[in-house]
Write a protein that binds this DNA or RNA. Structure first.
Lengths: 121, 121
DNA sequence: ACTTTACTCAACCAATTAGTTGACTATAAT
DNA sequence: ATTATAGTCAACTAATTGGTTGAGTAAAGT
């Protein structure tokens, strides 16, 4: 019974899509790719150009975004055309919005936390 | 010049706080902890109770949330009292909201992506 | 005083991640 | 026909992650 309760509790928050969405967005290179794609569809090479890393590395980042459903990749001739998909972003916002109450009148909470971190060192 | 452009572009999207916020939220155990703390302040032991893992493991998860500024831990006697902090959540929503446009009239995009994934196998 | 409770800490492990390089394929341009 | 472009793939590496266990500390209850 206790075990069942645990399982039920776990399932209620087990949303693999959120796992992959948040995980994909936890990397600044991938967030930069998302930002870039918001300005319009682009090829992988064009996407990779501003980054100081190999094309292979950017291709891997793009695969992470694609696997998470954040980006749609369409093969057209020898180039891949990448397009931003908003559905996972919406889902992420929906989840985060449930905790909206926790930042009202607490605008300086983060600053305080960071200050405290310095003191605790 | 090209190098400087690259550096500038990178810096514009280099926000370490978002790295740690999204990374912290990419784990379902940690999201469950956040959900639990939204119902009120709790001790670590209480938090850990529903999970099928060691207290040490939950303590580590809590440290990730704390390092990301999502949770504030206050030592009171021998128990740690944990409180949800909304500021990083707000920052995450602010970032995500910039891509709001990409889910309007695309409500079925995720479903299509998942269907395509099946076909591509 | 003793025991239980609420943790922390260090060491370890297996899996994943973020990057690299070198070799390759396929398409497009000359 | 040759060459350049766009990208993939496999193999490797170093660092990080998510979990474990066992030992230890510090506060509270009996």
């Amino acid at each position: 019974m206790l075990v069942n309760q645990k399982v039920h509790f776990m399932n209620a928050t087990d949303m693999p899509q959120l796992d992959s969405t948040f995980s994909a967005l936890s990397d600044s290179t991938r967030r930069a790719i998302v930002a870039r794609l918001a300005d319009g569809e682009t090829s992988l090479s064009d996407l990779a150009e501003p980054f100081d890393m190999s094309l292979t590395a950017v291709s891997k980042h793009l695969k992470v975004l694609s696997d998470a459903g954040l980006v749609d990749i369409e093969k057209r001739g020898r180039t891949r055309h990448c397009r931003l998909q908003g559905a996972p972003i919406k889902e992420a916002i929906d989840w985060l919005s449930k905790y909206e109450a926790f930042w009202i009148d607490r605008f300086d909470a983060l600053a305080r936390h960071l200050a405290k971190e310095e003191i605790d060192k």
